[in-house]
Design a protein around this nucleic acid. Structure first.
Length: 695
DNA sequence: AGCACGCCGACT
DNA sequence: GTCGGCGTGCTC
């Protein structure tokens, strides 16, 4: 279309004619809207509804939005419309939400740019650091940026945005005293390094007892004292509340926020904004807080990283530990991976030298840890009756004696675990002869099937002891409280579990029956704990069964008074089992290191890296055909997944790569996903990097 | 997800 | 001859 002549060069009549022409044209089509002159292009990531489009789109910035359309703000854009022939106008399409990623002088897109439809608020929620983090998480997990953004940026609420930024306290935070860290060999030096602005990295085997929330609070204070921000992620609201209280006591008000789901969306967004705006520099929260946009991040910490709630259930299912460590690397920040237990992933951080161990010396441990006693199955042979077999005489005596001095915790595995098959004689796991995956019995025919590669195993026998007998059995858990009540009629029995979790119990004598993860804290510590039916935890159909069982036992044992005060734990389990021995010696780090070495030898994660690909059988195959998998990728399966009623059959294939090829595997799978979607083959295939439950 | 464009069967 | 089937490709 021809440009109108410049009016200054024309006689008046011609000018008038030009104006008339221009008016006519303007009637025929809307005049192109004036465009922002400085940086007229906004690069946008679309967020909702088009999440498979993992790319940016450029839009023209209308002059009226030139100031509001800053990088990081939420916008609405028209997407998928079409250009009306001959004119620059477009129509149709639908409005989608997105964020401005950057402002540009020009676009490299050849076609005409559609204008931004709306700037939803001037709040710059997607900061460059947060965008970089989301991008890295998307790549790590073979997911899309839009999916990660949904996890990282909370939904908008108008009221908190309209409120003024609260004032941060003017005085700097003083470096904290070591407190409980004095009990650890390298504790005080870790705090000093943090306070000095350095970036120490450690795996922390916490001493048993109630000291850890205060110790975590001191690490946060030390990071703040260095002028940097801090972020702590914990597995549940109860744990967050304890660290929140410790921080409140140590730092006073307005230095930190707690981010948990139970706050409600608006309050959560209010606190998130306080962090995003830089008014608050320390965050303690549950899983979703892993993305909290802490300014000048100097320290990240995760507590109890083996807890399954650290694994995000929404795509692409990132793990809080991984996200925090990505952030630590990106920001050059200090990192602390702590808990009573040590995961194999943490052990790997130690083994590679990325992190240093932070543990109490032997004599501190002896003081703080309870005495652990085991009752093996054969020790109960003479006990006869069914309940007596689950509460052997030693456990009964320990409970009776301890009840004179305080509450007794009884940990009972939750009902509903599907136990993995194990040798009936020696309890060795039944494993596939081909790939060492766990075996299961899908029906009553007696033929076992590997849950990883699907091969049948017709004539299993135990590799350890040669026995042909398998065992898989679940006791009811709920009965235990009643049975205990009858055994100790004069003592109150309290329960804490799925429906009704107690945060704490008083120090008075009582039996406290709890399922793993729901153990209340006892005032002054429990006098004793009984860990019943321990083999149920060990028999879970999970690669992590041993690690997970130990983690839960340690969590219960850490609530018991130290051996010096008479604290005792009785575990009903075969004393020769490795996790049981690790509990007796209170040696989670040693157990994790051994476990890691074994996983390395067997080609298991996290040393080898795995990905799970699942979906309709043909679609899974299609994806694998498209994927240019790294050299030496091991394909296990497909196996049919258990299908809920009414759903189509789904297969799963596990992919295994040697150490160092995890990123290549993720990249290959992501590219294959993109290729499939681009071809319009819509049958969805789920890709999960580092599947936590690989049977 | 929509909504184009694109190349083969039954209608005025 | 044209109207229209939905295969596959793009959306700033």
């Amino acid at each position: 279309m021809a440009e109108p002549e410049t009016p200054e060069t024309s006689p008046v009549s011609e000018q008038l004619e030009l104006i008339r022409t221009e008016l006519r044209r303007a009637k025929a089509r809307p005049k192109p809207k004036p465009v922002a002159d400085a940086l007229p292009v906004a690069r946008v990531v679309v967020d909702k509804g088009l999440s498979h489009l993992d790319q940016y789109f450029d839009y023209a910035v209308p002059a009226r939005l030139a100031d509001a359309a800053q990088p990081g703000v939420r916008v609405r854009v028209r997407f998928g419309g079409r250009v009306v022939k001959g004119q620059g106008r477009r129509e149709g399409g639908r409005l989608v939400d997105g964020y401005i990623v950057e402002r540009l002088a020009a676009s490299d897109f050849a076609g005409p740019l559609a204008p931004l439809a709306q700037v939803l608020s001037p709040e710059r929620v997607l900061t460059p650091e947060l965008l970089r983090l989301c991008r890295a998480v998307a790549d790590r997990y073979a997911g899309t940026l839009a999916d990660v953004l949904q996890l990282a940026v909370p939904p908008k609420h108008n009221k908190p945005e309209a409120e003024p930024v609260p004032d941060a306290p003017a005085e700097p935070v003083p470096a904290p005293q070591p407190g409980g860290w004095a009990r650890y060999v390298d504790g005080p030096s870790f705090l000093e390094a943090l306070a000095a602005g350095e970036a120490p990295r450690a795996v922390w085997s916490a001493l048993p007892g109630p000291g850890w929330p205060d110790e975590l609070a001191r690490t946060v204070a030390a990071a703040l004292a260095s002028g940097r921000g801090a972020l702590v992620v914990l597995p549940d609201g109860r744990a967050v509340a304890r660290v929140d209280a410790a921080l409140q006591a140590l730092l006073g008000p307005d230095r930190h926020v707690a981010l948990t789901a139970e706050l409600g969306a608006e309050e959560r967004y209010r606190r998130w904004l306080a962090v995003s705006r830089g008014a608050v520099r320390a965050v303690v929260g549950t899983r979703a807080a892993m993305f909290a946009p802490v300014a000048d991040l100097g320290f990240v910490a995760i507590w109890d990283d083996g807890d399954s709630s650290h694994s995000e259930p929404h795509a692409p299912q990132p793990h809080a530990r991984d996200v925090l460590l990505l952030r630590a690397v990106d920001a050059g920040a200090a990192a602390l991976v702590g808990g009573f237990a040590v995961t194999v992933e943490a052990a790997q951080l130690l083994r590679t030298g990325w992190a240093r161990p932070l543990a109490g010396p032997r004599e501190e441990l002896r003081r703080a840890a309870p005495l652990v006693r085991t009752v093996g199955d054969h020790d109960q042979a003479g006990d006869g009756a069914a309940f007596a077999a689950r509460l052997p005489s030693l456990a009964w005596r320990v409970a009776r004696d301890a009840l004179a001095h305080g509450p007794v915790l009884v940990q009972v595995p939750r009902r509903g675990y599907v136990p993995r098959l194990a040798c009936a004689r020696c309890r060795e796991q039944a494993r596939c002869a081909h790939c060492a995956g766990p075996l299961e019995a899908p029906d009553a025919t007696g033929v076992l099937v590997c849950t990883w590669c699907g091969r049948p195993e017709a004539d299993w026998h135990c590799r350890e002891c040669g026995s042909f007998k398998l065992r898989a059995q679940v006791f009811g858990a709920r009965r235990t409280a009643d049975e205990l009540g009858r055994a100790f009629p004069s003592v109150p029995v309290r329960t804490s579990g799925r429906d009704g979790v107690l945060a704490s119990v008083p120090g008075a004598p009582a039996l406290v029956v709890a399922t793993p993860g729901a153990e209340p804290v006892a005032e002054g510590g429990y006098a004793a704990a009984l860990l019943l039916d321990a083999w149920v935890l060990l028999g879970r159909p999970d690669l992590r069964a041993g690690e997970e069982a130990l983690r839960r036992w340690l969590a219960a044992g850490a609530l018991v008074r130290g051996a010096a005060e008479g604290g005792t734990v009785v575990i009903v389990a075969e004393p020769s089992l490795r996790p049981v021995q690790a509990l007796v010696r209170w040696d989670p780090a040693g157990h994790a290191a051994t476990e890691l070495a074994e996983r390395a030898e067997l080609g298991f994660p996290p040393v080898s890296r795995m990905a799970a690909v699942s979906g309709p059988p043909a679609a899974v195959q299609d994806l694998l055909d498209l994927a240019r998998l790294p050299e030496g990728t091991d394909l296990l399966g497909p196996v049919a997944l258990p299908t809920p009623r009414g759903e189509d059959r789904a297969d799963r294939v596990l992919l295994r790569v040697s150490p160092g090829r995890g990123a290549a595997l993720a990249t290959a799978l992501k590219a294959a996903q993109a290729a499939r979607l681009a071809r319009g083959k819509a049958e969805p295939v789920r890709v999960r990097i580092d599947p936590p439950d690989i049977g």
